[in-house]
Design a binder for these strands. Structure first.
Lengths: 344, 344
DNA sequence: TTTGGCACTCGCGTGTTCAGAGTGCCAGGA
DNA sequence: TCCTGGCACTCTGAACACGCGAGTGCCAAA
């Protein structure tokens, strides 16, 4: 009557929290007696049992079989993450260690590689880091190099340090002066702009050239636009697969589909893509679209060189994971990577 | 007396061959009776038992426990690979499929990615492909781009399609004419040469420039030499980790160290490094230096764009693997990759 | 040298038992 | 109305016994 229907009272929530914490720690179904012993709930096991029955009724926990303890369901973890847990901040020494480890990086590849390893180590789970995406980056410089009379190399450098190169086969020989002119015009217009904006800014470029050179100019521009648009080519780096061995008891069954999913960059990219940009996203068990990852949870967040995110990173582990700790680590690492990128 | 001591007669070898084949197929210790049933050895089980006893005496096979069948030892597999097995050539349709699959590649990354996936699929094991190493490649082109008054980007393109770029912070502003001159001189001397030769060819370059420009020239050259020498930065691509789940029964114990090893690029690079250049190398179980891979075998071979190898590729699987088939696949894939690289 | 026969060993699957953990329910008490 | 102690019940997992069958080693005969 008063308040919401199906409202769980304080103590029941405390019981759920305790169950999650214990189960994550021990990996074993937790019973009423053990619960009151470890957490001082101030009530007797019998009372806890009643609460547990209610929680089970609501679908937050369940028993693997009669006369076993309870384990949280996906829905239980969800409630835990949303209402019962606080992100656990990293300790000062941990933060220093992160900082120090990432500071040693020399180029973008190295930043990503270090980040992913660090994250895997901190969380003792599988870490995933997406390379800064092209579409959010801005152009630092575009270079054209004549390699052969009718062959031009196109190099695109972004503010995130990413470098893309493409070969362009031109319809005819390309004069050095034309190339220099084209290079200058492109950079004058494109430098500092977001990648997706660039095609619009360069559209009218061919008109500035002699009739004879226009085919070449158009070909080069076409390749450039292609490169700019090529979001598919987004790369991902993985680490910590060995941590999968700590997954569970029913081993090969659980781990195989996970390993398969991890090999499919497409799957991983889609997973990360579902992350909200700024806020941390937690997808628990079956909330996850991909079937093979039904018994895993994914904690992910965007990171960026400035205020806004240019890519995502995250951690994949068993649903039974230490959410507060994992979320803390993910958040901290994302922040520091952002700083590093902004500095470089 | 006649012939070598410890010489095994023909039939014993046939028995060993049969044991290896059966065990690889069934994953179960193979007994004398099953053996004569499946292979028509033309002798009775009792005879086979005698031979088995002899083989065990010599250390080629062993029993997990009394009253179980025999399984080959590392030494047994070694003999099998060296004397008893022939590399199984790929069938014509398989060869066509390989060809077709690799032909679709658009750049070096793509070639390597396709190769590694293909190899994993063909052998149903973990595949490893090393990127063409810099030291064996030749220079196709070296480009210098002024990004800022005192900031130059250096791009190195090799004949294997690999592209390396570095930023160079120069001691002072760099004139465009100086840069063009330097670019021309570098390419005139270095194009087509092996990477390790290049430093020798460019040593006297600073002498051709004005006194004022020499620090800049030297700085650029220093970075170039560094890039040329940076063999450490050799990269590797992996695929097929999910195939590890078919490893064995004592699962987590075996798989964990393997996953750990696979995460260490250094370990993998060293493993591949031990491969003889041209010939196919097979390292079986404990022959392997790295402890975590003691229960795995590695089949590897060099591949190259011309006659000589520029990098290695291979397959990692349980010692109990189909050696003839695996070796056939590895050889075929290496050949076709070589062709693709030569064409591009 | 091969072969059939035979006794022996040992792992594995099955069945049974038993203790312990955990539950649900009920009746009494605050 | 809610909490609590008590009690009967359920079920798992470990321990143990047992028998089957696969496989072996050895020996004597061909």
């Amino acid at each position: 009557m008063a308040g919401e229907v199906r409202q769980l009272d304080e103590r029941k929530l405390a019981v759920l929290r305790a169950i999650v914490q214990d189960y994550v720690g021990t990996e074993e179904p937790v019973g009423s007696k053990a619960l009151v012993e470890r957490h001082n709930l101030g009530v007797s096991p019998a009372t806890v049992r009643n609460d547990m029955a209610a929680l089970e009724e609501e679908g937050y926990i369940h028993q693997p079989h009669t006369s076993a303890g309870r384990i949280p369901t996906d829905k239980g973890y969800r409630l835990f993450v949303d209402k019962l847990a606080e992100i656990k901040p990293m300790s000062a020494p941990e933060r220093r260690a992160i900082r120090h480890f990432l500071d040693g990086a020399v180029d973008l590849d190295d930043v990503v590689a270090r980040t992913v390893r660090l994250l895997a180590q901190l969380t003792r789970q599988v870490a995933v880091v997406q390379y800064p995406s092209l579409s959010r980056s801005t152009v630092r410089h575009i270079e054209l190099v004549a390699l052969a009379p009718a062959k031009v190399m196109l190099v695109l450098i972004t503010n995130t340090g990413r470098v893309e190169q493409r070969m362009v086969d031109c319809p005819g020989a390309v004069g050095e002066t034309v190339l220099a002119d084209l290079r200058a015009r492109i950079n004058a217009r494109a430098a500092g702009r977001r990648l997706p904006e660039v095609p619009g800014l360069l559209e009218e470029l061919p008109a500035h050239f002699e009739q004879a050179d226009r085919p070449t100019v158009s070909t080069v521009l076409a390749t450039l636009f292609e490169t700019l648009a090529e979001q598919n080519e987004e790369r991902i780096m993985l680490a910590g697969t060995a941590n999968l061995t700590r997954f569970g008891h029913d081993f090969p069954l659980t781990i195989q589909p996970v390993l398969e999913a991890l090999e499919e960059q497409v799957v991983l990219l889609r997973l990360l893509g579902e992350t909200a940009d700024a806020a941390m996203t937690v997808r628990i068990g079956r909330e996850n679209a991909y079937e093979g990852l039904n018994s895993t949870s994914i904690v992910s967040v965007g990171y960026g060189s400035g205020d806004e995110s240019v890519a995502k990173l995250g951690v994949i582990g068993p649903t039974r994971m230490d959410y507060p700790g994992t979320m803390g680590a993910v958040r901290a690492v994302a922040r520091y990577v952002g700083q590093i990128l902004a500095e470089s």
